[in-house]
Design a protein around this nucleic acid. Structure first.
Lengths: 85, 85
DNA sequence: TGAAATTTGTGCGTATGTATT
DNA sequence: GAATACATACGCACAAATTTC
């Protein structure tokens, strides 16, 4: 499992966004499947809530995922993937 | 809307504190009403989080506002306003 | 019915590091 | 060195929506 490097020049939220983006892009997280919850991300990657929120917000803004309050954050449908444009 | 001047001798947090103080004093922000959130202030005035926090902290210290954990920062009740003393 | 747990979103407070003046 | 300002990151609290029991 990829881990984060606090000493790297890239911010933790960017590193985490990159990891999650790859997990979606490669299909490890299939289309329309829930991403790990915010809580899980903090536990799995050892970051604060805000940091995990920031990472996911980047994916949402980039079009890799969408969030549903009370439910979770989901990877977009195959046809909606940004790298298909 | 008042804006901030990075070239002025007064620090940005002081300029912002002055603006918010006026907005309370004039009643534009009524008593016991929530001030703009930290996030809103950063967006509206183009400053960093810390700068907006600093400005609001000044108002709290002066007695123009009080903060409620998990909720926000609110203008004081009419009777508690510093200019009434 | 409804209470509890989960999840996302938002809010403030604080600390640290970097750059600038 | 001190003050200002930005970015990053941690922590904790409150709210609303949803799911589960």
């Amino acid at each position: 499992m990829s881990t984060l490097n606090p000493d790297a020049p890239e911010p933790l939220y960017e590193q985490l966004a990159t990891i999650l983006r790859e997990r979606i892009r490669t299909g490890e997280i299939p289309p329309r499947r829930a991403l790990p919850s915010n809580r899980r991300l903090t536990l799995d990657y050892g970051v604060a809530r805000g940091t995990a929120l920031h990472a996911v917000a980047i994916l949402v803004e980039e079009g890799w995922a969408y969030s549903v309050p009370g439910r979770g954050v989901f990877s977009v449908a195959d046809n909606d993937r940004p790298d298909r444009r």
